[in-house]
Design a protein around this nucleic acid. Sequence first.
DNA 1: TCCTTTTACGTAAACGTTTACTCTTTTTAA
DNA 2: TTAAAAAGAGTAAACGTTTACGTAAAAGGA
Lengths: 342, 342
Amino acid sequence: MSITIKDVARQAGVSIATVSRIVNGQKGYGEKTKERVLKTIEELGYTPNAIARGLVGRETKSIGVLLPKLSGLFASKLLEGMEETARNEGYSLFVCHTDSKEDRAIQDLQVLKEKQVDGIIYASDQLSESQGQMLNSMVCPAVFVSTQSLTHPFPYVKVDDYQAACTGTRYLIEKGHKQIAFIGGSLEDPIAGKPRDEGFRRTMKDHHLKVEESLTAYGDFRFQSGKESFKNILKAEKPFTAVFAVSDEMAAGVLSAAYEQGISVPDDISVLGYDNTMAAEMAIPPLTTMAQPLEEMGQKAVELILSLRENKENINKNEIVKHRLIERKSVLERSKTKGLFL
Amino acid sequence: MSITIKDVARQAGVSIATVSRIVNGQKGYGEKTKERVLKTIEELGYTPNAIARGLVGRETKSIGVLLPKLSGLFASKLLEGMEETARNEGYSLFVCHTDSKEDRAIQDLQVLKEKQVDGIIYASDQLSESQGQMLNSMVCPAVFVSTQSLTHPFPYVKVDDYQAACTGTRYLIEKGHKQIAFIGGSLEDPIAGKPRDEGFRRTMKDHHLKVEESLTAYGDFRFQSGKESFKNILKAEKPFTAVFAVSDEMAAGVLSAAYEQGISVPDDISVLGYDNTMAAEMAIPPLTTMAQPLEEMGQKAVELILSLRENKENINKNEIVKHRLIERKSVLERSKTKGLFL
DNA sequence: TCCTTTTACGTAAACGTTTACTCTTTTTAA
DNA sequence: TTAAAAAGAGTAAACGTTTACGTAAAAGGA
């Protein structure tokens, strides 16, 4: 069907080896030959076949990405960072939506293995035991982004969630808040759930503040769960002046629930988010939030993959990226907010 | 390095042809041989090499997707629909972020061609002349989703934007609104920009309503442009009671600008969005919006690709999917809204 | 000048599959 | 029983590259 290197070779009256060398910018041919071949390539509209290349060269210039959720601002921002870097390095991205389902992820890993990807990026989800085993059995490097695994020590790039939660909580406290509600991720999640909870509790304790259990709730980082969590917190009718939700989507959920109940943010209560996705920008009021540098993380993840491909020796390639508090409009000083159930 | 079909064959004492047949579920071997080979495969942990398969079978089970923007709810919802269907059919997705840049898209197309994808999905952006030529020169089928091209008639799946804009406008009019502001996409965009504008104007005219030009503005479908467009509209100080923004992100932008100006939605003005992404759900108030069935569109797009691969003959494969108005809280009847500058 | 090195190529093997042909052996049908 | 058909298996070519190796001619050095 399509034009191959053989066609070019025949047409230009040279061997395929010469064409190959010219195409790949190696040396071993004269200037005139080069021009003739290049012209033939142009005329015939020859495009090298990356599949054939991949077979002999044993690299495919493609990277597999596993994401629990594709829709959602978190994933897309991460993905954008990866795409940009991958593209610049000549790589393409296979993106897979695991939906946090064990079997889907396994299937994805299997497919990526068959497709001989040069690396795998496992993003923002917990790794199960069997997934870890699959990852280990792969010949290509794997890295985590915005997650990690205690049992399977692949390199990761993430923020220090514990510290970030501390920073966020401290920020609220410094603004004068003492009665703070908390909406976390699942405590069963040892990576993104537990540490943020611990950071929150630790910081409260360090400031001799009590965390009222009925002011805590745990969701799945998504909008709806934030909304419901906040409604539950409201039911307790315990006094509070601020709420820390550990994802912007959940924070948007509290904004939404608050709006339904006629509670004003930030006049009645302050709300602090986490992630700094577009949800934070678009929210009303715009969310003050603990930023994760998601594009940068995506970028670092593919850079990490690439560097692992070169130096097989790679102890301690982990990257802790810096979190940063972005002030917008959803948090006010204690003195300026009314509070609820006081 | 890794285990190949040869290793399996040798170990099991059969030829590679037999292993191949067994792996691919063809026939031509005995039950006992099959079991022995399967056991060997298990023991050795053999995984077929899709690259080699792709070379001989001339299909790669992968599809390239070109999106102007990865971050953003629109793209991610579309992508989720595609991924689901692709996965079920055994395909993987290469996703590319063109950023609406001519050269990036060309580069992407080139790479996808080299990687021998089985199909290309071009999403939600205008096709340039040279991109169209590249698409034509590809051996694999290409389809549009949420866009189309007048000069390059590839099959597409999209809503009828003109009709959808009509429906949206009519909805507002039926609610009693007469002075309606409009925030459209670029009029230079003959696919997603112009038709919505025309639908709006036509419907206004059909109802003997005047469109006040200073109440119209044109953005790029993104949040910021919606925000700025609305601020410009405000500057005109012309009376209006509702605004129709042709993307949820832009509608969220008007919500945001309105909030900043102390304008209440929906008490002062009604706002109608377009797309029905999560932005509409999360907005405050939740947006009434013209829904595009994005997952379904993603699904249809890959189905279309797949069907094009079988029947080479494919006249009129276009799919117009149904738009639908989703009522939430951002539009009120005229009698219940105060309006601005009256 | 002659020998050595470099340059400019061509040949052919390899990469891991699938598949069209073979060739036996077994089963089926008459 | 026997011819025909089916089943079970192997051989080898092909897919489109890259690359190690070989070789002849050109260039360089003394």
